[in-house]
Nucleic acid binder design. Structure first.
Lengths: 201, 201
DNA sequence: CACGATACGGAACAACGTTCCAGTTAGCAA
DNA sequence: TTGCTAACTGGAACGTTGTTCCGTATCGTG
């Protein structure tokens, strides 16, 4: 979930208690600020909200991309973890719908990150893989359960769906319910061929 | 070719002579600096090379995107204009090859612009259209002439070729001749089905 | 409790984007 | 040519940002 310092090996040392607090506060603050002002937001805005000095930030995240990548991974983990929880709590179709909405919320906070991803900085190279690796199995399980229950067709491709919703949620940004309507439309589309022979995802 | 001030209607007034000099100097300097250091290069670097004050830059290009877009359009125009010239000067296949190499040179100076394009700034919205609108006819003519001369097959899609070379030239940046070899490979591919029935571009 | 290692805060510096205006210059009319 | 006005120019100056540095505070341990 939270790797302490920068990029390479996970966490080398157990991190002192206050240091762990700082890292957590920074990641939480950065997540909020990134969502509000994009990944190019001023550093001071983050340190101020985390109630932390600038030196503390640079101690744990020497490169800006370290912070961005860490926030990204943390949010991917959080969103992916919701999948099994929902699956245990709701019937398959309901769990699927709710998770897709949650995923749309995740995507909505990624304003400006797309540009960073294509900036050529090698620090971001691993993120798309991380994204796919963690989300695809979660959605695959949700789809599978719903299909077994006869609630949706069985030929939906998880990765296609993820990208479709990603494209749906990105251009809006504003808090209207357009994305939500689109998602339910997609789910309805999945339900269409439930019992009989389906066509495509 | 050179629209004076910022974005909307072309040039509203004929621009005073010294102002025209400044604009030209700025566009030339910006083109060099962008090619060397990317579109995020410091403003002062541009004004210094243009031998111009900062105020002069902001008078003619209030937004950074104005300057970037102007440089982009100017270079598109310059590159597109070379097409007919080469066509009149060389035999069709030679003209085609030379222009493709020229086009690769154009693409090579666009480092970092791809990221800006996807930044969401509406000032860049028109650029892709401008790109396609000016390059596609030029290449289409060159391909057509070469096909009529029996030098290449006749089913090559100009737009496909432009994007292929664009992808070829982007990742290299360094001045090796890899791009050039790839282009000649492409042209050889075009020649393959010259007289007989071809397959695809 | 005391001590060493670790981490913290925020002042300080450098570099940048942008604004502002006193001085200069181009274009035109007499 | 000369004089006038509007347009244009240069660069100092300001506010903001990224980043470093180090005296001080805190943690974990024997």
């Amino acid at each position: 979930m939270d790797d302490g310092p920068s990029s390479p090996g996970r966490h080398r040392q157990p991190l002192r208690a206050d240091a762990q607090r700082s890292v957590d506060a920074l990641l939480a603050a950065a997540a909020q600020v990134f969502a509000e002002s994009g990944v190019d937001a001023p550093v001071r805005q983050i340190t101020a909200r985390a109630d932390v000095g600038a030196g503390t930030l640079y101690r744990h995240f020497p490169q800006r991309s370290d912070l961005i990548a860490a926030v990204f991974r943390r949010e991917v983990d959080a969103c992916a973890a919701v999948g099994p929880t929902l699956a245990a709590q709701y019937e398959p179709l309901e769990a699927l719908t709710r998770w897709l909405e949650r995923f749309a919320g995740f995507v909505a906070t990624k304003r400006g990150l797309s540009a960073a991803l294509h900036s050529g900085d090698p620090a971001y190279d691993s993120l798309p893989g991380y994204f796919q690796q963690h989300f695809e199995p979660v959605l695959a399980d949700l789809l599978d359960s719903a299909a077994r229950a006869g609630a949706i067709r069985s030929d939906a491709d998880p990765w296609d769906l993820l990208r479709a919703i990603g494209n749906l949620a990105v251009p809006l940004e504003d808090g209207d319910d357009h994305t939500q309507r689109m998602i339910s439309l997609l789910v309805d589309g999945l339900r269409y061929g439930a019992g009989s022979a389906p066509r495509q995802a």
